[in-house]
């Protein structure tokens, strides 16, 4: 058995192979390498630190259980990201079921105020430092509804196609297109609003 130090020097496919044979220290090294990315994806979807921590850790446990199913068709971290996304979607569905049917929820589907928003002509992110831009995007994402944020994260950050998003979110492609459109319009509006706030 190799030491922890030797494990950290191993290439990812070797670590995955060892973990598939039941070596927990190899799996620990994989967790150490990718824990931030898996946590970040959970956080971008849930916008809650505790939930993101729990779901990302659950994802790693599930990953260990299903490790023998990993065939290497995608990278290990992509495979793990899919697991955490599915757990987050399940959690969001549970929360939605618990949430009472509200005007806000109905407006999410029909576009609400985004439907009547004028097109933002000027670039609201122009001239911003990268860190500032990221912070603004993060704040704006936090103001979106769960449905709008999820579809945006899956499309823009995970680069999933409409069909795949619809399959994962268990809705029609039309709903995905609509949600994505209103999510983008709201983001554009929020970023423009944030720029106005900062310049005042």
């Amino acid at each position: 058995m190799s030491t922890d130090h030797e494990k950290s020097a191993l290439a990812e496919p070797d670590l995955v192979g060892l973990a598939q044979q039941g070596e927990l220290t190899a799996f620990e090294e994989l967790v150490a390498r990718h824990r931030d990315k898996i946590y970040a994806r959970a956080y971008s979807m849930m916008r809650n630190e505790d939930e993101a921590l729990d779901l990302s850790q659950d994802a790693w446990v599930k990953g260990w259980q299903r490790l023998k199913q990993f065939q290497g068709d995608s990278s290990f971290v992509t495979w793990m990201t899919r697991i955490v996304i599915n757990l987050c979607l399940d959690q969001l569905r549970k929360q939605k079921r618990q949430r009472a049917e509200s005007i806000e929820a109905m407006e999410e589907e029909s576009g609400g105020v985004e439907r009547h928003m004028p097109v933002i002509v000027a670039n609201p992110t122009e001239g911003l430092e990268r860190a500032e831009l990221r912070a603004r995007i993060d704040r704006a994402l936090g103001q979106l509804s769960n449905e709008h944020r999820t579809v945006l994260v899956l499309h823009e950050f995970e680069e999933l196609e409409y069909k795949e998003i619809a399959r994962r979110m268990k809705c029609s492609i039309g709903t995905v297109m609509s949600r994505l459109f209103y999510a983008r319009r709201r983001m554009a509006s929020l970023l423009a609003g944030l720029k106005r706030e900062n310049s005042e």
Binding site: V31, R35, F157, R184, A188
Partner: peptide, 28 residues
Amino acid sequence: AAELGRLKGVLSRNETAAAVPESREFYW
């Protein structure tokens, strides 16, 4: 199209990189 295109370009390159707010040992 210009508004949507601008936003698409900005978002895809600027995801915030959140990090686990716990030590490696505690998280593991």
